[in-house]
Design a protein around this nucleic acid. Structure first.
Lengths: 108, 108
DNA sequence: ACGCGATACTTAAGTGAACTAGGTATCCCA
DNA sequence: TGGGATACCTAGTTCACTTAAGTATCGCGT
């Protein structure tokens, strides 16, 4: 992740979420994460692109080259059906986990 | 962490929190984490003990051998003043981070 | 009397995600 | 002309965590 970076394992979740409403290219995914979290989460390119390749290898994303909004070639990633199922599972995992941490921190 | 394990980097936070109200030995810290999170977070010993040594080396915990509740020798860890400051910072970091992830997941 | 599970701690070896830090290329704007 | 945004890539490193093994004591059930 980045800056004062954070908590390995959440990047996959964020990437899959970024792509739930339709294909996006890598650079736009990184921008989306930064923007929707108001700069709290800034993904380094050296983390982002390898993660995209990893998710593609696992069958959760599929790739194809298209023309971007700016008229350049860009590699678009689409969420596959297994990817969507995986997102649901990861999301549940995150909720269980963050809930547990919250309870621990709140403990008298 | 463990089981369906999770999210590297939160262990330090949980350990420091476990020790805010007074010294505890490693085994009890592990048990506290498991119990306060209702088995959601189960720390492997191979993660727990190295983490304790790490936190001690950084000056956030101090060690001393005492007799445990069961009458055995156990290494007790005490939160140092810098450790307390670090806990506050880590906690803030966690709250910023988990809040950001929550916003991203909630995004329309 | 014997073994098993809980208590209590240790560490070597391996995995893998993320960070660091470079690189390529195009486009627009000052 | 040069910098900043767009768009991608990867080799090398770091370091937390997992796996898996070990040591030792104690209480309990059978």
């Amino acid at each position: 992740m980045a800056g004062s970076d954070l908590f390995t394992g959440t990047l996959d979740l964020l990437i899959l979420k970024a792509v739930t409403w339709g294909p996006r290219h890598g650079y736009a995914i990184g921008r989306w994460i930064r923007e929707t979290t108001a700069d709290v989460l800034v993904v380094q390119e050296g983390a982002l692109y390898p993660a995209l390749h990893r998710l593609e290898r696992k069958g959760w994303l599929s790739e194809d080259w298209r023309e971007s909004e700016t008229g350049r070639q860009a590699k678009y990633y689409t969420l596959t059906p297994p990817g969507r199922a995986h997102l649901r599972a990861e999301r549940k995992r995150w909720e269980r986990f963050s809930g547990a941490v919250a309870r621990a921190l709140a403990a008298a």
